[in-house]
């Protein structure tokens, strides 16, 4: 075939270039129906909204000072890049009262392959006095498979605290999984009313062994060592509390 463009061909090319945005199928089918199908196709190939609800820990905890029910869970809803993220944790002591309960509502944005940046608010329903915080943090996967969640909190009293959590999963078998976990809380300054001293407080090192009957359903047992340090520990001891100690835990990890 000749490669020398003839006048009609040039005309055709100009027309075709002008109609660049046109989709070939529009010549055969209703353009409106095609536009609808096209947008559905694109949305349906990469822009889906997904979600997760996970109770990382739903457990009964016992030590020499008493028993407690402890929960920690998260949930998200959104696309690959933008998610609405909820986090909650708390403790229900001795079947009497809720000792601690917090809720975070966050916007989470994927900023790199393994990390999301999260920002939003946190409210502590317990203990009293109740505190609200602004939150900025990051959550993701560090090299060597450490799950990390680190956040800074600015309370309505102007106090700054930080929380760093990290977890690791060790497969003993395909279903038996050992999970070490470390949580560190730091305060930039004391918040006496809330019982927080400057420095390290409420720090936990834990080990849980779960069995995944299904990926979504895994009962576990574990040990938890934790407590307060420095100024916070002094405050606790002044109130005849025990600053540090071991607990035995048993519970479920569930997700949907």
């Amino acid at each position: 075939m000749s490669r020398i463009p003839t006048l009609p061909t040039i005309g055709l090319v100009l027309f075709a270039v002008g109609a660049d945005a046109q989709n070939a199928a529009d010549a055969f089918y209703d353009a409106q129906a095609m536009a609808t199908a096209r947008s559905k196709l694109q949305e349906g190939h990469g822009n889906q909204v997904n979600s997760l609800i996970i109770a990382e820990r739903l457990e009964y905890s016992t030590n020499d000072t008493g028993d407690a029910v402890v929960w920690e869970g998260q949930g998200w809803l959104g696309t690959d890049r933008n998610k609405f993220w909820v986090k909650t944790e708390g403790e229900y002591v001795d079947g009497e009262e809720i000792d601690e309960a917090e809720l975070q509502l966050l916007y989470s944005r994927a900023v790199s392959a393994f990390w999301d940046v999260q920002a939003g608010i946190r409210h502590d329903f317990e203990p009293t006095p109740r505190r609200s915080h602004l939150v900025i943090g990051t959550q993701g996967l560090a090299p060597y498979w450490f799950e990390v969640d680190a956040a800074l909190f600015l309370s309505d009293e102007g106090k700054v605290t930080a929380r760093i959590e990290t977890e690791y999963e060790l497969s003993l078998t395909q279903r038996l999984i050992l999970q070490p976990r470390l949580e560190i809380n730091l305060a930039a300054s004391a918040d006496e009313e809330a019982g927080i001293g400057k420095g390290l407080f409420d720090t936990v090192a834990e080990l849980r062994l779960r069995y995944e009957f299904r990926r979504e359903f895994a009962p576990y047992i574990g040990v938890s060592w934790g407590g307060d340090f420095g100024d916070t520990a002094d405050m606790v001891q002044r109130q005849d509390g025990k600053a540090r100690g071991f607990s035995i835990v048993a519970g479920f990890r569930l997700w949907y």
């Binding site: 199908a37 096209r38 196709l41």
Partner: peptide, 14 residues
């Protein structure tokens, strides 16, 4: 012919 290829949103509306 592409309009017979059967991909909704590309070759026909479905």
């Amino acid at each position: 012919p592409f309009q017979m290829d059967g991909v909704p949103g590309v070759s026909f509306p479905g």
